[in-house]
């Protein structure tokens, strides 16, 4: 009996010692934190679409968008390389979740501006949120010379607005998917069969091939009976290549315009006829306001 208890005593003491030797860190309770899921896409655009990502707070992103002519131009047009449309843009992150942007496209000499607010951030831990969601509001003013200068022309006829909800999820390290229900409003349309408001749903995804290269795709479905019969849904496929401060996006798309009202509602090229542009976006970020970091 006595030996038995002594043995227990010795064992308990040893075990107690041993436990304390093993893992000191386990003595601290770990506080559960909310971990936000970042980098669902390499930049704030998928190809033409806005992605789930915002420009980080205090960062200026200079964008050069470039589309050559269409491949069906044939050898005469060197498969589109003779022509080009461009958009130059600046995006600025007011905060990590609020971005504003300005741009100018050569296509229809259009100026555009947008605000984008990410109101849900995918997270795990203390606050578990399966999706991210952002609201995008854009407006555009087309500044081509009036087609019929002799009639009464109004400035308001040049204006276009887009409202878009972007909902998506980074499923894992390499795969992200988003849906974007969209409404484009045009103050003036070409014929009375076309609607001023055009509704559609976009889908876009990316798959990372390596840490720094991903393949991206996007498609915009338009509800029937809203636009002229020659308008085709926008479909684009491409690659993102990230090199430090730059992201290069190389792609094939049937859209000439790089802004919402254009690639959603004015797209006349079709993949089937070879109406495909080769193009690229270059994104270069500049940190304007450095984050305050507590320094040792």
């Amino acid at each position: 009996m006595r030996t038995y208890f002594l043995l227990i005593t010795a064992f308990v003491c040893l075990a107690s010692l041993k436990a304390q030797q093993d893992d000191l860190l386990s003595l601290l309770e770990e506080e559960e934190t909310t971990e936000y899921i970042n980098a669902s896409f390499k930049t704030n655009r998928v190809i033409n679409f806005h992605s789930l990502e915002n420009t980080a707070g205090g960062v200026l992103d200079f964008k050069i968008g470039h589309r050559f002519g269409t491949l069906n131009g044939g050898f005469y047009e060197l498969f589109g390389l003779d022509n080009a449309t461009i958009r130059l843009g600046l995006d600025y992150g007011i905060s990590d979740v609020f971005t504003v942007g300005l741009g100018r496209s050569s296509y229809q000499k259009t100026y555009d501006g947008y605000v984008k607010y990410k109101w849900l951030r995918q997270s795990t831990g203390k606050r578990n949120m399966p999706i991210s969601a952002a609201l995008l509001l854009t407006s555009a003013v087309q500044t081509l010379a009036w087609a019929n200068p002799e009639r009464d022309n109004f400035f308001s006829s040049r204006l276009y607005y887009t409202t878009q909800l972007i909902i998506g999820r980074k499923f894992n390290e390499s795969f992200s998917l988003q849906l974007s229900p969209t409404m484009v409003h045009r103050n003036l349309v070409r014929t009375n069969t076309e609607k001023n408001d055009v509704y559609g749903v976009g889908a876009a995804g990316r798959f990372k091939l390596t840490k720094r290269i991903s393949v991206n795709a996007e498609y915009m479905y338009l509800l029937p009976g809203q636009v002229a019969s020659d308008i085709k849904p926008s479909l684009s496929l491409g690659f993102d290549i990230e090199t430090g401060g730059h992201v290069f996006q190389l792609h094939f798309t049937n859209s000439t315009s790089m802004i919402e009202k254009g690639f959603i509602a004015e797209n006349t090229n079709s993949w089937a006829d070879g109406g495909i542009h080769f193009g690229f976006n270059v994104s270069r970020v500049f940190t304007i306001v450095r984050k305050k970091v507590p320094v040792i």
Partner: peptide, 15 residues
């Protein structure tokens, strides 16, 4: 780990 530049922080974690 916090960086002054957001992109560096992203690359630090991602890449």
């Amino acid at each position: 780990f916090q960086f002054e530049r957001a992109l560096m922080q992203e690359h630090f974690n991602e890449n």
